[in-house]
Simulated assay, not measured.
Amino acid sequence: MFDFYALLVLAEEWEPGLSETAINSLHQAGLSRLRLGTDNWTAAFMNPQVVKLAKGAGYLVASYDSYDTGIPQGLNDSWLTAQLPSEITEKCHIIYRG
């Protein structure tokens, strides 16, 4: 039986998702190409050293969303990232074909 408790970390040792510890752990696990998503642009903006480390490991760091989604000016201006209102979601789909 697998011991999941061995994977747990004390709350005092938690770090934000975008951290040097996380990047180093992913790299040491042999993961050489990843897209690391942040919940908004401020996570990467506030951690430039971690972004540089991630890029050096071969990772792409980007927020899950962007401002360039075709939302008319004046609608959702207060959001940190572009969260589509339902009337736009129904008419405008963002599709990645990579």
Results as ranks from 00 to 15, higher is better:
Glu20Thr: 12
Ala22Asn: 14
Ser32His: 14
Ile71Pro: 00
Asp39Met: 13
Ile88His: 13
Leu34Ile: 10
Gln73Asp: 14
Gly58Thr: 10
Glu12Gly: 10
Arg33Ala: 11
Glu90Arg: 14
Ala43Glu: 14
Asp3Val: 04
Ser66Cys: 15
Thr21Trp: 01
Ile95Leu: 13
Ser86Ala: 11
Glu90Asp: 12
Glu13Cys: 03
Gln49Cys: 02
Gly56Trp: 04
Phe4Ser: 06
Leu26Trp: 04
Phe2Gly: 01
Asn76Arg: 14
Ala22Glu: 07
Pro16Glu: 12
Ser32Ile: 05
Ala44Asp: 02
Pro48Tyr: 07
Gly58Arg: 07
Arg97Ser: 09
Ala44Met: 06
Phe45Arg: 15
Lys91Ala: 13
Leu18Phe: 07
Asn47Cys: 09
Leu34Glu: 06
Glu12Lys: 10
Ser25Gly: 10
Trp41Asp: 08
Ser32Phe: 05
Asp68Ser: 11
Leu84Met: 15
Asn40Val: 06
Leu31Ser: 03
Leu31Glu: 08
Lys55Ile: 06
Asn47Pro: 00
Gly37Val: 13
Ile88Cys: 07
Ala11Cys: 05
Tyr96Cys: 04
Lys55Arg: 14
Val51Pro: 10
Glu15His: 07
Leu60Glu: 14
Phe4His: 12
Gly17His: 09
Ala6Thr: 03
Pro85Asp: 12
Met46Cys: 01
Asp77Gln: 05
Thr42Trp: 10
Ala44Phe: 00
Gln49Met: 03
Arg33Lys: 15
Leu84Asn: 12
Ala44Lys: 03
Cys92Phe: 11
Arg97Pro: 00
Phe4Gln: 06
Arg33Asp: 10
Asp3Gly: 05
Asp39Tyr: 04
Ser78Ala: 15
Glu13Pro: 03
Trp41Ile: 08
Leu60Gly: 00
Thr38Leu: 00
Ala82Trp: 02
Trp41Ser: 05
Asp68His: 06
Ala82Arg: 05
Leu10Trp: 03
Leu34Arg: 12
Ile88Trp: 13
Ala6Phe: 01
Ile88Pro: 06
Ser32Ala: 12
Leu75His: 09
Ala54Cys: 03
Leu7Thr: 08
Gly37Gln: 13
Ile88Asn: 05
Gly58Asp: 11
Gly30Asp: 07
Ser32Gln: 13
Ala62Tyr: 01
Tyr64Asp: 06
Leu60Asn: 08
Glu13His: 08
Arg35Leu: 13
Ser25Asn: 11
Lys52Gly: 00
Met46Ile: 07
Gly30Phe: 10
Ile95Glu: 09
His93Lys: 14
Pro72Ile: 00
Leu53Asn: 03
Lys91Phe: 02
Gln83Val: 12
Thr21Asp: 09
Gln49Leu: 07
Trp79His: 12
Leu84Gln: 15
Phe45Glu: 15
Ala44Gln: 02
Val51Trp: 08
Ala43Ile: 05
Phe4Trp: 09
Gly74Phe: 05
Leu7Phe: 10
Glu20His: 10
Ala29His: 10
Leu36Gln: 00
Thr21Pro: 00
Ser78Cys: 05
Leu26Gly: 03
Asp39Glu: 13
Leu26Ile: 05
Phe2Asn: 04
Ile94Lys: 11
